[in-house]
Simulated assay, not measured.
Amino acid sequence: FTAKFSADQTRMIIQPNQQLLYDTSYLVTIRSSARDLVGNELRGDVERQFMTRTIYARGLKIRVAKLIPQVVDPPEALTGAGGGRNEVLRLRSDVSVEYITPGVCSTLKMMVAANPSGLDLDLRVTGDRGQGLCRARGISGSDEWIPLECSVKDQNTFKLIATGGTGIVRLSDAVLECSSGARQSRCFFDSDMPESFRVHDKIIFGAKCYNYEGDLIPASMYVFTVKLIHCQTICHSHVELVRERSDYGQYTVPDHGDFFFVEIDLGMRDSRNVIIASTQIRPQTVTVRVTTKPPGIKVAVDSLSGLSPLKSIVVVGSNFTVNVPTRSYGGGFR
């Protein structure tokens, strides 16, 4: 999962990196080593448990023929076809075809047959981790069309695999049952983007977006917005960079003072500023501690002020300012 904080730093939003399983109990734990902006740790681990429940996704039927195959192995072993039964795909034996599931979907239904000379063919449908979702065995040209139905709940991808004897597996009326909002674009940030930064680091970012059919959206439609979110007791954001018509970009982290982090939003040029995907990159930090003799004197580190001893978290590589009274009972600071 990815943890994201609200602009005022009062809420942490946990975003799963993949769909959660249905009817499953999950436990979220924040360890006591977690620190706030001034370096205070939790008194103990914080745990929250929640349970997902099954909601049958329906309201929109999407034909598999509309989806763009992401992987075809071998490439020449998949063809489209016509025919009286709305036939959409022909798969030769020993071929696999992978698709991106177009949103939240519940079932995949199809009719399966073989070409007239086909003999003893199998068709398997597998999920994200290669687990079997459904299977039709011993398909031959002399057979009638066979109905096949699979559950594709919580699957980000699914794969059609034809194996067995000789001939061609024919798929007709292949339809996904999905939720009404399933025709949405999906964007994925590059996996090699940095997880943290120091001041003056160069962050290289990139992403790929697909429409609900699985077709790659041209980079000319992308709009990246890089924001620097500056926090101490109150947070506010600055738009640092807007990059359009490209699927990558770079941003050099400035020395901004105080605690801050970087947020990168990605939208489409024709989507009226709707953000499709967002990611945060957090800084590497150190704790600055200001003490005085005697203690209890008001001091400040950049915009954070309080009575000494005072702790503040600053970004590695940044310059910061310590402010103390010019005269403090003949004492000093260190």
Rank of each mutant, 00 (worst) to 15 (best):
T2Y: 07
L20Q: 03
S25H: 07
S33P: 02
G39Q: 09
N40S: 10
L42H: 00
G44S: 10
A77G: 08
A81P: 06
A81H: 10
E87G: 02
L91K: 02
D94E: 14
D94V: 09
Y99K: 01
T101L: 02
P102V: 07
K109H: 09
K109G: 11
M110T: 00
V112W: 01
A114E: 04
D120F: 08
R124I: 03
V125P: 00
D143T: 00
E144M: 11
D154T: 13
T163P: 01
G167M: 04
G167C: 03
I168H: 13
R183N: 11
E195H: 11
F205G: 02
K208Y: 10
Y212H: 06
E213P: 02
V223R: 11
T225L: 07
I229Q: 14
T233F: 12
I234N: 13
I234F: 14
H236N: 15
H236K: 13
S237F: 10
S237G: 15
E240W: 01
L241T: 02
Y248G: 07
P254D: 05
D255L: 01
E263S: 12
G267N: 05
V274G: 07
A277E: 15
T287I: 15
T292L: 05
T292Q: 05
S303C: 06
G306F: 06
L307T: 10
L310Y: 03
V316M: 00
N319M: 04
N319D: 08
F333L: 06
